[in-house]
Structure formats: C-alpha cells, structure tokens
Design a protein around this nucleic acid. Structure first.
Lengths: 352, 352
DNA sequence: CGTTATATGGAGAACGTTCTACAACTCGTC
DNA sequence: GACGAGTTGTAGAACGTTCTCCATATAACG
C-alpha cells in the first residue's frame, strides 16, 4: 500500500515533502524539521530523512515555502544592465551567496520608476527574504515604506539619515576629491567636471555626491568659488553632441573629471576623432575603473570603487539584517585612483 | 462587524484576496475570477471588484499564485553578465514583456554547470511560467528533462534536433562565413581564426558553430583543407599570453577572425602595444558588434547578431509555448557585417 | 513506584491563491 | 407550470510548505 503509493507518486507527480515522509516512514512535520534543522530530531531520524531526500531527489517548493516561511531568495534590483560597473556588483553578491543556501534573483528596472516599483512589489509578493537595490531611483520615503515589509539594503544611494534600511556606498565625495587632487598634482589648474544631467536634484545619487566632492576639492585648492560643471543629457543623441561641443570650445579646460567611465571613454573616442590629444591637450580622469578603461587602446585613468566589494558588503549586511539586526547601518568604502595614460604621458601620477 | 473586520485587516496585515472579497461584498472565488478574467462574471460584479482592488491597493501574492496556478513570471538564465552581448538580450526580453502582465527574473550562472542546474531548479520550484536559457552549458538531454516540467526556449544553443524545447539562434555558421568572405574580398588570403577553448566538444555552442562556418568558407575559397584555428584558453592569465604569442609568431597570418569582440578588442589592444599595425599588418573581424567595438578608439569590424532581437523573438516564442503550442520550433536569424577600420584603412568593405 | 522533567515525533491549522463542482436564478418553450 | 438551457455567483478542496501545540517515551529523582 505504502509502496504502491510511493511508486505512483514517483511515476506521475512531483516529489513533495509528503513523498519523502512516507518513504522514510515518518511524519511530514519530521521532514520539515530536518529541512530547517530545527530542534527536536534524533540522529537516527535525521539520517532516515536525509537518505530519503537523497534517494528521491527531493527539492522543496520555493513557492510553497514563500507562502508560509522563508524562501531563501534575495532579490537584486539593477537600474541598468549595460553599465559595466553593475555586473561587478552582481559578481560580489553571487560570490557571498554561493556557499550559503540563499540564491539571488535579479530584476532590471531600466531606470524607470514605474518598473522599479513594480519589480520591488513583485519581489515582496514572492516573499523573498531581502532586497538589494542598486542605485535605485525611488525617493527615500518610498523605499522606507517598502523596508517595513522586507529587509532592504541600498547600494549607491547616499542617505545616511535613513533609519528603515541600510546603505552601502563608496565615498563618492572623496572619490571625486582624489580625482581632482591627482589632476592638481600633475600641475593642471584649469579643471572641469563632466556630470550627468538628471531629472530631479536627487541628492542621494552618486553623481550628485561626486559633484559635491569636485566642488570642495576645487575650492580647497583656491581655484575660485565656482567650480565649472558641464552636464551631459541622458538621451543618447544629445549625449555625443554635448561632448563634441565641449571638446571644440575655445575655453576648453586643460583637464576634465568625468562622472563615469561610460562617458569618459566616449569622450576619449571623440577627442581622437577631433584631433584633441590626450593628455597633451586634455587630461581625463574617469570613474568606476571599468574593464574597458584598462584596455591598452583606451588607457583611461579612473577612480576605482570596487563594485565587487560593494556587492559583497551589501550582501553580508542584508543577511545580518534578515537574521534579526535592527537599526540602520550606513557603510562607506574608500575609493582609489588608478593612474593611466590619460592623466600623464607616462601613465604615472606624480607623488604628492 | 464586516466593517470592523475590514479595518482590522487594513491596519495590521496584508491585503489579501479575502480582504477584497469582504470589501466588495462578494465571494473570494468571484474576486479570483475577475483577476484571471475568467468566464462567468457580470459587468456589475466586475466593476465592484475592480473598485475594491483599486481602493485597497490589492496585489496578488506571487508565492500563493505559484502554489496553485501561474505565477506570471518568466525566468532568464544568463551564463555570464560581463559579456556586453548578453545585456542586449535582456533588453529585448524586457521590451516584449513590459506591456504584458509577465515579468522577468534573471539568474546568473557564471558558466558553472552546478549553479546553472540549481538556478533552473529554483525557477521551476518557484513555479515560474517559462524559462529562457541564454547560452546554457547543460547537455541537451538534461535540458529536455527540465523542459518536461516547464516551457523552455534556449538562445545561443544549436540543437535543431531538440523536440522538447525551442531554440532561437543567429546563424553562427553563416556569420563566420560572412566574416571570412569580407576578409577575402579585401584581398587577404592568409586567414586564421581565434576561437575559444572549451572543456568539451560542445557542438551546440555558438563558438563551435562559428568554427564550422569558418572552415567551410576557407575551403570553399580553395585555401587548403585545413583551416587554422587557434584556441584561446578560458582562464584569464593564459588568455592574454596566448594572444601575445599569436601576435609575435613569425608565420602570423595576414588576417584574423575572432570568435567574440570580447577577445578581439583585447587583441587590438595588445597589437597596439606590440607595434602590430591594424589593419596594415593584421586585419581583424570580431563577433557581436558590441558597443565597445563601435568606439572611435577601437573601431573594430564585427559581425552583428542583434542580441535585442534574439531576446524579443525568444520571448515571443516562449509565450506562445506557454499558451499551449506543442512541437519544437527552431528559429534562425541572419547576422550581418559591420565594417570598420580594423578591416580596411577606409573602414569600408569592398563590394563583392 | 509515583512524580516531574526532558527529549522526540506527529496532527493539523495556517499561508493566499486557483479552480471544480454545484447552487440559484432567469428565461424561453412546450 | 414543468422542464431544460444558459448565466452568474459561491463553497470548499487543493497546492506544498512551516510551525504551534500536543502526545508519547524515556530518564531522573525522591
């Protein structure tokens, strides 16, 4: 009877916790206990159950788990999958998660608030155990409201005042300062920043933080109180146009700090096309130290904020919150300069 | 009583289908019917229910849905998030899914069979509605076994014999032929291929297909029966070393077709470092037409296989299968050449 | 030997949906 | 006015877990 039932189940249907229970000759509750290694199971029982699990190839249904308890999944929300910095963060997340029983599921919002919201809601509806939001666009109070329903860590989101969720960031202000200091050390005095134009004045965004650091460093060097910042529009056709205009300006600066390698590399390409020599006519420092920047053909000096490390730290922070920590943590990491030929001919930064 | 209950529920807990039902004064089943717009609901009832849903801000639990019926989620499995070709595929998937009520959740396997398997299993365990596997490493029979449990479309996986799942591919054989034909048209006769060394002889992989196309084109041109193929090891340190060795070989060919822009761009960088002029000393054609290839600094001729389109087609194919189609489809798309300076000085390919 | 503490296993109620089967009601139609 | 057909709504059993009691067995102790 029990054997027949077993066979029938094995032939047709999914192996459920019930299949395992009958096979091992124990109750469903016992199997569940073993799975969650909860208190109150003898060694003998545990062995019987694990054997049955092995033999039957049982995998608990995440859907059912999510309905009642934990789902052992953490959601990662990426603003954009094309910026080569973001995959690094994912690599960090996966690295930490791999040896654990957690898994990452990724959603891509394409920088659209609408989609971002609905993805976060979906992840909550899946009863995921926690969320890592990478450079989210949503305002802080909305994120806080979500954080009441699920543990959240935001990466690349400067909001040290947040009490409902944690943040993990590179110190973007300091990163910008380091870039400017390097340019100063090379003797450049006429320095401009290429930044990203964003809809709102999102103070939390990494870009705004870099602007703040840029301004501070310029002023600290006594180079006038108005640090010039050119904003690059987000729409692709205008993007190149703005850079071309910048390169052909009569009062083009001697050096430029660009908010991201993404645009810095395009700038280098356009400079080559237009006959502007780098670094002789224009020195360039980018941000992110992406793999493309390291190519011999490109050779772009850049500020390195290890995305991988950011991902690792964010994951550990999230897990500690899932496991009961309350009270927000706000973690900062120190970026560093990677000097290359776009800074000086030799590629070496002068020692300060 | 009913009002009090409503209030209590609203204050504390999640808004469930039951909350909506009591609020609208109908049964749970009725609400479910409206949600799934099933047969047998009057306009009046539908209106009452949709109103209640609106007012309460009800969102069905994906976890619970998954337990019983559809979850309206499709899983995408990426082998690697760093190759800039793959995000394009995601963009295509998201584009098709956006207006629908489906959502994509992405898993990254980092080319590890172990992780790939467990991610696929997880997605099944979440009762996702279908899977898009991008360049999976798993053998065909294993995928077929999974396909018995969930609709599957494989992208970048050449297995036209598969009956259990669909495939969507660019014609990689033809792509390689086009590359060789372009090089021939430029007058180069001494052509070699840089390919990727893989553990097994995975005939299904895009790389192998490109090798087949390369060989055929070379033989068709009457250039000897043994088309020379150099394999690049997967491990990063050896990777550069192999390319350096290739570039410094005495019998280095006049032209090279590289399996992917990823390596072609590194090759260009090394060539510059080592004083090998492109295209005067060595002409190069890559594969994927990645955004980096288009940069002025790089200017790499490449075979374009629109990843975005691949993603779109795969998604439509998957949805049609989810909605009942049986019998495998195997779809091919035609790649094309994008000529740039790594092919000829002018960047234009001669007309054949 | 009776009483109490402790360790182990199980019954069964959730969780929030879907969906089958059926009840109730409205029309025609003979 | 009885009967079938069609329409609209509902009750309630799944789905596969988790987890709170509760029952039983064993040990400890006076």
């Amino acid at each position: 009877m029990s054997i027949e039932e077993k066979k029938r189940l094995q032939r047709n249907d999914r192996v459920t916790i019930r299949t395992v229970a009958t096979h091992a000759g124990v109750s469903v509750a016992a199997v569940s206990k073993v799975m969650r290694n909860a208190y109150g199971v003898s060694e003998a029982l545990r062995a019987r159950v694990t054997d049955a699990i092995e033999v039957l190839g049982y995998r608990p249904s995440r859907a059912a788990r999510g309905l009642r308890g934990r789902s052992f999944t953490i959601g990662v929300l990426l603003i954009d999958i094309r910026n080569p910095f973001l995959p690094e963060v994912i690599a960090g997340v996966n690295g930490v998660l791999a040896p654990s029983h957690y898994q990452a599921m990724i959603g891509v919002s394409d920088a659209r608030v609408q989609l971002e919201t609905s993805l976060i809601e979906s992840m909550i509806d899946y009863k995921m155990d926690g969320l890592i939001l990478v450079a989210p666009r949503l305002p802080s109070d909305i994120i806080a409201k979500f954080a009441a329903q699920i543990p959240i860590v935001a990466v690349g989101y400067h909001d040290v005042g947040a009490t409902a969720f944690d943040t993990v960031n590179a110190d973007d202000q300091r990163g910008a300062e380091i870039a400017v200091e390097a340019l100063l050390a090379c003797g450049y005095r006429d320095i401009e920043m290429l930044s990203l134009g964003e809809r709102e004045g999102h103070q939390v965004s990494v870009v705004r933080q870099r602007e703040i650091g840029f301004r501070r460093a310029i002023q600290r060097a006594g180079l006038g109180s108005s640090a010039p910042i050119t904003k690059i529009p987000i729409a692709p056709p205008k993007r190149e146009e703005t850079m071309r205009k910048f390169l052909s300006r009569k009062n083009r600066p001697r050096a430029v700090f660009c908010w991201s390698d993404l645009d810095a590399i395009t700038l280098l390409s356009l400079a080559m096309e237009m006959g502007v020599r780098v670094p002789e006519d224009l020195a360039v420092v980018g941000y992110d130290n992406s793999s493309t920047a390291a190519l011999g053909l490109v050779n772009l000096a850049s500020i390195d904020q290890s995305g991988r490390e950011l991902g690792q730290v964010a994951t550990r922070t999230l897990i500690s919150r899932i496991e009961g920590r309350t009270g927000a943590e706000h973690i900062f990491q120190m970026p560093s300069l990677v000097s290359r030929n776009s800074l000086t001919r030799s590629g070496k930064a002068p020692v300060t």
